[in-house]
Each structure stands twice: as structure tokens, then as C-alpha cells.
């Protein structure tokens, strides 16, 4: 019982991190049919920014955790919008393949830049949550896992409120469904795409800052997370935000349970297992568990 709940909570915490990065991918994919391969490196880079805010004195003093956390989210937003405007916007009329290659270029650049600025060595990144546990009915529940889960899902929830209840959020959804019709109603879709990149960067920053305390900070810290996020997004159908979150949480719990109860599944096998799950799901349901099959145009 104890083991089960520990595995469940650890899985949900991991899953929430996958979910927020998966949601970032879906945000951009839904609007432009482009998979942003740089999503993981954007998350890594903004986590380094948080690290800089936490460790280097700015205006005479370093920031404490939560101010640095929120400031990082703001910087991440500006960073995401800026990347879309500077790197992606000039390729507006290019094919999807060219834009995907541009995101790969971005991946390479950000990875190199982080190693260049902060050195490729592993760095310790603090967690805002204590390492102690709560004991409820004889079961130990990790405060760190609970906190990670809570913070990540709170960010996802705020984003959901934005999309559900604000005019801008509505326009972004409309633009993703039918960009030409949205433009005919006066929506400047190109700026909404930049906004989408901004939100995706914020979600990435959250996932980066939440995974760094356990995975350590390094230029390649998000590569594995990005692959888990890909798997989550695909499980959810790539176009469904709800599916991405559900896929992320499900994958996190599944991997944690496999690691706990199936002994041949050592940590090295987490990625191969995720890949296997991805392939099997796509074989059974080619549009993902939550996706709709869309008739392809000739």
C-alpha cells in the first residue's frame, strides 16, 4: 500500500511535468501544424534564467524562490513571443517542413548557448518544497511530489481559464480552427501565434523549473522530458489539450508503476518503454487516444 501510493504520487509529479510540456507542444501544433522540437531546449534555457536570477546578484541582491519563479515566467513569455517574431515569422510562407527544421535549428542554438553561457556541467537547482513527507493513515506522501504536481497543474488550470473565458483566448482557439475565417473577423492571427509561443514557453519554464531539482540543471536536462512529452501529446492525439494533460499524467503513473512493480524495467528502460507505448498506441489508434481521425486532403 505504502509502495503503491508512493509510486502513484511520484508518477503524478513526473506526469504533471510531462503534461505541461506536452500542452506546450499541442498549443503550437494545433495553431500551425508545426511540432516545435525546440520546446525542450526553450524550457531548459528559461530554467537557466531562473538559476541566474536565484544565484547572481541583480541590483545588489539575489531573488528568493517564488519571486524568481514568477519573474522567470514573465521572461519566458517575452522570450517565446520574441522567438516566434524573429525566427518563425519570416518563414510564414514556407512549408511546414522548413519551419520544423527552423525549430531544430533553434534546438541546436539554445543547447549550445546554454553550454556556452553556463558551462555544460550539472548544476544543483533548488526546490521550493521540503524533502519531508506527510503521514496520512500510515502512508508517507512526499511534499515535493505533491508540490510539483500542484504547481504544474495550477499553471495548466490558469491557462485553461484564459482560453475558456477571455476574448483573446477565444480568438486563439478560433484562429487554430479556421485561421482565414478568424482573419476575416478582424483577428490578427499572426500575433496570436506569437502569443501561443509565449504561453508555450511559460509552460515549458514551469516544467523545467519543476524537473530541475530532481534531474539537475544541464543543457540536455529536457531532452528525455521532451520525448516523454511527445509521447504524452501523441497519446492525447496531438490536437487535444485535455488529451495532452491526461496523456502526460497517465504516462507518468504508468512508468512509475512499471518501475516499481516490474523489476526488469530499470530507469534506463524508461525511454525505450515510452517509445514502445507510443508505437503500440499509434498502431491501435493512429490518431491518439483522444484524437479524431481527420480525412486527409489530396
Amino acid at each position: 500500500m505504502q509502495q503503491f501510493f508512493q509510486a502513484l504520487m511520484a508518477g503524478l509529479a513526473d506526469g504533471a511535468i510531462f503534461a505541461s510540456l506536452a500542452l506546450a507542444l499541442v498549443l503550437i501544433y494545433k495553431a500551425t501544424e508545426v511540432i516545435n522540437f525546440a520546446q525542450g531546449e526553450m524550457a531548459m534555457f528559461t530554467t537557466y534564467i531562473a538559476y541566474a536570477l536565484l544565484t547572481h546578484p541583480h541590483f545588489g541582491h539575489t531573488l528568493s524562490y517564488w519571486p524568481a519563479f514568477f519573474m522567470t515566467l514573465v521572461i519566458a513569455f517575452v522570450f517565446g513571443v520574441g522567438l516566434q517574431r524573429v525566427v518563425i515569422k519570416p518563414l510564414e510562407k514556407a512549408s511546414v517542413l522548413t519551419v520544423v527544421m527552423a525549430t531544430i535549428a533553434l534546438l541546436v542554438i539554445l543547447n549550445g548557448l546554454a553550454a556556452w553561457i553556463w558551462s555544460p556541467e550539472l548544476k544543483f537547482f533548488p526546490s521550493p518544497f521540503p524533502t519531508s513527507t506527510w503521514v496520512i493513515g500510515g502512508v508517507h506522501i512526499s511534499k515535493q511530489d505533491t508540490g510539483t504536481f500542484g504547481v504544474t497543474l495550477a499553471c495548466v488550470f490558469v491557462l485553461w481559464l484564459f482560453f475558456r473565458f477571455t476574448k483573446l483566448g477565444l480568438a486563439m482557439r478560433a484562429g487554430a480552427v479556421n485561421p482565414v475565417a478568424a482573419r476575416l473577423l478582424g483577428v490578427r492571427t499572426s500575433w496570436l501565434l506569437a502569443l501561443g509561443w509565449g504561453f508555450a514557453a511559460v509552460l515549458g519554464a514551469v516544467s523545467g523549473m519543476m524537473s530541475a531539482p530532481t534531474n539537475f540543471l544541464s543543457p540536455s536536462m529536457m531532452q528525455a522530458v521532451l520525448i516523454f512529452a511527445f509521447a504524452s501529446a501523441v497519446l492525447g492525439g496531438l490536437e487535444s489539450p485535455v488529451g495532452a494533460v491526461a496523456g502526460g499524467l497517465g504516462l507518468g503513473v504508468l512508468l512509475s508503476m512499471l518501475g516499481t512493480y516490474v523489476h526488469p524495467v530499470t530507469p534506463e528502460l524508461r525511454l525505450p518503454v515510452a517509445l514502445l507505448i507510443l508505437l503500440v498506441v499509434l498502431l491501435i489508434k493512429p490518431a491518439g487516444l483522444f484524437g479524431r481521425v481527420v480525412v486527409r486532403r489530396v
Binding site: 501544433y29 501544424e33 511540432i35 522540437f37 511546414v96 520544423v100 531532452q223 528525455a224 521532451l226 520525448i227 511527445f230 509521447a231 501529446a233 501523441v234 496531438l238 534506463e268 528502460l269 524508461r270 525511454l271 525505450p272 515510452a274 517509445l275 507510443l278 508505437l279 503500440v280 499509434l282 498502431l283 493512429p286 486527409r296
Partner: peptide
């Protein structure tokens, strides 16, 4: 065999997982 049945973006995503999975194996 399974992967090429997926539409473009899904295949690219799946291939991205190969190198790290290979290292794990």
C-alpha cells in the same frame, strides 16, 4: 513497420525518441 503508417508529424516525433532509447538499451 509500425512507424511509417503514421502521418508525417507522428513519425518525426517517434524517431526523435530512438537515439535516447538506444542509449538506454
Amino acid at each position: 513497420l509500425p512507424a511509417t503508417r503514421f502521418a508525417g508529424p507522428y513519425l518525426a516525433l517517434a524517431t526523435f525518441a530512438i537515439p535516447l532509447s538506444f542509449i538506454g538499451l
